Simulated scan of single mutants.
Amino acid sequence: MAPSTPPLQVTVLGAGAVGCFYGGMLARAGHRVTLVGRPAHVDAVRREGLRMETRMFDEQVRLQGVIRAADAPPADVVLFCVKSMDTEGAGRELRATLRPDTLVLCLQNGVDNADRLRTVLPEHEVAAAVVYVATEMAGPGHLRHHGRGELVIEPARTADRVAQAFAAAGVPTEVSPDVRSALWFKLVLNSAYNAISAIAQKPYGECVPAPGIRQVMRDVVDECLAVAAAEGIRLPADPHAAVDKLVASMPSQLSSTAQDLARGKPTEIDFLNGHVVRRGEALGVPTPANRVLWALVKLVEQRGPTPA
């Protein structure tokens, strides 16, 4: 289908599961999308398109793929989807490819990526986005979508146009001035689920019913709320209720942290439970449950990939 307004030129930097879902949805709606990813993934996309196996459709979506950001055409918007630990490095790599009016939209886990990216892209517009989607890469060029897909975008000069493009492409999108609270709200959800799923190597629906897990999750959430309050953050809804409901909407989802551990890749745990621990230390708020989960994930990281 063709977009109702002139198509956007979109670059997806860090074409993993999140970037492929949102980039693929825009490409499917007629926007010009280029994925920047690893060679095997890019080769598969060039040959056959991106397979989007979603809850609504299963299609091969045609888009472009390149290995280096410098090889992507000048973009109206960059979907910045690299891992949190790579934010500054990827931002410096991206800097020379940006037009003055390009919007860089951070679709990353954690609460401070947009601020960190602004330090290396001071002359460009950077906006944070809160991502609510359950996805995984089932193989090179193959995205599997398990549920949801909403976006909340920070106000920016072209944010309304980008939000309209996403909405027309089937992605519920809101532009909100209170993105910081929304990012913290998502951090609470991630802190409750990601490490537990990672340590167990099980999806949410198998973790939550296990003995003692619900109480551990409540302890994690309570610590996150105490740190958020000390930071002056007012959360937009009841995190305990949201945590309880999430498993029903994503029972088959394996957390991104679990997927990283299974592949022997570094995780983003330092920017999830680890962030809560660091801010708790700085603010004098105890965070023992978050510290245990953070430390255990760091320990498992040292083991390497899970044997097949």
Rank of each mutant, 00 (worst) to 15 (best):
L246W: 01
L293Y: 01
P305R: 15
R38N: 08
G139R: 12
V175N: 01
V300Q: 15
G23I: 04
V188M: 12
D260E: 14
P7C: 12
P266R: 15
A228S: 10
V292N: 00
V221L: 02
V179F: 03
P73D: 10
R234M: 09
R95Y: 02
C207M: 09
Q9T: 15
Y193I: 11
P307G: 11
I67Y: 01
A127V: 10
R157L: 11
L246P: 00
S249Y: 06
V61D: 03
Y22R: 04
P203N: 10
C106R: 04
P211A: 05
T87M: 07
V33C: 04
L187G: 04
I196E: 02
R278D: 11
H31F: 10
L225D: 00
L117M: 05
S191K: 03
G91K: 05
P209K: 07
L293C: 03
A226W: 01
G149C: 08
A195C: 07
Q302C: 13
K245V: 00
V216L: 14
V162I: 13
S249C: 04
A192S: 12
K202R: 14
V247K: 02
V171S: 06
A262M: 15
T173S: 06
D219G: 06
P209V: 08
Y193H: 13
E281L: 15
D112F: 08
V292P: 00
L261C: 11
S256M: 07
L143S: 04
A168T: 02
G170E: 07
A163Y: 05
R32A: 15
M52S: 03
R218L: 02
D160M: 12
